[in-house]
Design a binder for these strands. Structure first.
Lengths: 254, 254
DNA sequence: AGCCTAAGTTGAACGCGTTCAATTCAGGCG
DNA sequence: CGCCTGAATTGAACGCGTTCAACTTAGGCT
């Protein structure tokens, strides 16, 4: 019977050890990245500071880039938490979107100095960090879900077409703001904040504009486009291109 | 007197030699990139194939990335040429935009296999290849000029606000299509072409929509935003933030 | 206890992009 | 002609990210 209890492949003891080392390496790496920047931090330095051998760092992280991925996952979590607070507090669409976007800039602020490298590696289509890659699909999903919550959880009612299209569009929009932020060298990234506020205002205006029933054909077309985009993005795998145009927005949530 | 004729710092003979070597290295590199891909092509291989020493390649190109920059400049020229043909032939806005965009995809098609690396390095804010960098400002300018020509050179008349805002917006749009293309693994990049055609249709619809006088406030706001963006992008240098809101669109063309 | 396996850990070695002190080359000048 | 200067060229050497065959632990089974 005891053998059955051992069905769990790893005992807690065993797992503890590895995870401690893993955490140790990650913390050290992030510290060094913040201190000296990414390029200037060598894997040897990370290993030495963490008190392990170089190879051991590679046992836990497939590459130096994967250390950034871990960092990215962390800020992503922070942003989700901060956003949930905002969304629990605010009802108005404007306040909700503004709050979530502001939370984004606030969350990533401490890492502005090496955001460039992050983005650089993230841009590689083959990198797991790439926001369009399969590996980051969960993160992307959570982000679009967040924007879905922004528009549906408040006191503003939108047409179904908008509700279907906006989460992905807002995700793309927020990526654009981050892109601006990366290139923003103004003190405190002040320009990014004003740019964000201005563009949020514009986005809200556009949303209310497209509530107008006469513009429905536009929305329909936009929806097809966004769906197509999502299909391409979701995965290049063998998943069938079955019914690429059937459901319209029906399969937006896979 | 003869000494004066030598006022030209380098004689043609001297210049010829260096430029031949430079061209030799570049051609070899581009060939190898196409054959094996970027990452798989080593600087040593390039040097050997070109019949020079490694260091000599670095005498002409500051880094491996700079070889890509040279390639990028080339496809850019090709696209300009192809576009000029289209614009000389077509009068309708739809045909002009479609033609220019199709020309873009056609031009970059041969390099799809290593477009990822190109984009990866281009994404680094510090890279000279970055489309927002000061070093690529001329290329960016030519591109936006091209789109300006697309909308003003045809037989379609647009409101001044649109004429002012569209070149930059279309440039951003075309970057988005390229981004899609980079991630497109469909045979012959067919998906990119249909996505481009669909989005062009949408863009044209949006343009005609915003011709509507009632939507002028939107355009105004959009214009401020685009101008701001252009300012940030143009350079982070000491150029004064003087009159950031004075001229409206007046200073779009610096 | 003694073994066995899998997890964890090591560090020398590899291949790469890049650098740079040294060398060759070519053309103008006294 | 010999000298000089700056462009052109060399290749050994450096530092880096990454790999991998070997070694050490540690816990379960007989």
């Amino acid at each position: 019977m005891e053998t059955i209890t051992a069905a769990v492949p790893e005992t807690p003891k065993k797992r503890r050890k590895g995870e401690e080392t893993r955490a140790q390496i990650l913390e050290t790496a992030l510290d060094l990245f913040r201190e000296r920047g990414y390029e200037e931090t060598t894997m040897r330095a990370i290993a030495e500071s963490a008190g392990v051998a170089v190879g051991n760092a590679y046992y836990y992280f497939k590459s130096k880039e994967h250390l950034i991925q871990a960092f990215y996952a962390r800020t992503h979590e922070e942003h989700l938490a901060a956003s949930r607070e905002v969304l629990a507090r605010e009802r108005g669409l404007r306040e909700r979107l503004l709050g979530v976007m502001r939370a984004k800039l606030d969350t990533i602020a401490p890492y502005h100095q090496f955001s460039g490298v992050l983005f650089k590696t993230a841009a590689d289509p083959l990198s797991p960090l790439n926001p369009f890659s399969a590996e980051s699909q969960p993160v992307r999903q959570q982000s679009t879900d967040l924007f879905a919550e922004v528009i549906t959880g408040g006191d503003t009612r939108l047409t179904p077409d908008l509700v279907a299209a906006l989460p992905n569009l807002l995700w793309v929009y927020h990526m654009g703001i981050v892109l601006y932020w990366i290139h923003d060298s103004s003190p405190g990234c002040a320009k990014s904040y004003t740019m964000m506020e201005r563009s949020v205002r514009l986005v809200l205006r556009l949303i209310s504009l497209f509530q107008f029933p006469l513009l429905r054909p536009f929305l329909k077309e936009l929806l097809v486009l966004v769906t197509e985009l999502r299909g391409e993005v979701a995965g290049i795998g063998p998943e069938p291109s079955a019914a690429p145009l059937t459901g319209g927005a029906a399969d937006l949530r896979a």
